[in-house]
Design a binder for these strands. Sequence first.
DNA 1: CAGGATCCGACATGATACTG
DNA 2: CAGTATCATGTCGGATCCTG
Lengths: 123, 123
Amino acid sequence: MTAYEKTCLIRGDGGRAVRAVLDRIGDTWSLLVVATLDGERLRFSELQQRVSGISQRMLTRTVRQLERDGLVSRTSYGEVPPRVEYELTPLGRTLLGPAVALAEWAVAHNRDVDASRASYDER
Amino acid sequence: MTAYEKTCLIRGDGGRAVRAVLDRIGDTWSLLVVATLDGERLRFSELQQRVSGISQRMLTRTVRQLERDGLVSRTSYGEVPPRVEYELTPLGRTLLGPAVALAEWAVAHNRDVDASRASYDER
DNA sequence: CAGGATCCGACATGATACTG
DNA sequence: CAGTATCATGTCGGATCCTG
């Protein structure tokens, strides 16, 4: 792929496509929730336990948005006490590829970035 | 790659690696600026023209952070009027791979997401 | 158990005006 | 030209309390 093709792909339509995707999964929790649901069907409380540090409010908001975007499906059983389970949709699973690519970049290069920051901040 | 390996990669260390990356490029402009600099060395004003809609202030902040993170290099020629050029560093270029993967996902699936949103919002 | 409602502080972004 | 300074606004995320 040429540089021109890449830049067109990312910047296409004024960058609207990429911005749309980042608006969806660029927040603090969405990608972590999606990754956590990979291959598993989890209840709300289980999800909260596995995504360490997420508040109840943010988990609620995150799964709502993921559900709205069609990446996660929500199943509520009409029981008392309530039981609600979440899982990835087929569409949600397709996101794992790019997400893994990003994660691989992170683990491969975060040290370089941190080093660069440190040397920049010295000045 | 198994689901377990993926989830570990993304969620590893409490998701710190992915969060770090998203903190850097998950904002509105960083990824667009990086993509715009792909294969080109541009002056501040050229960059602002090509990244449509970015304000002067946000471009300044964005390139500063990208420079600090070692993804972009800044060259200031001591002239009057000032001339400053930006280009990707080798590290910055490595980000283009994951970025393209994300962009491809976006153009491939944004319609599905929009459709899901529309049907969700009907209710 | 799975949330909804409310309040709050921090930060991201933008508009505008100014400067070396 | 390439910024900096200041002000305003909106959103993100957390803490806390309440409920069917």
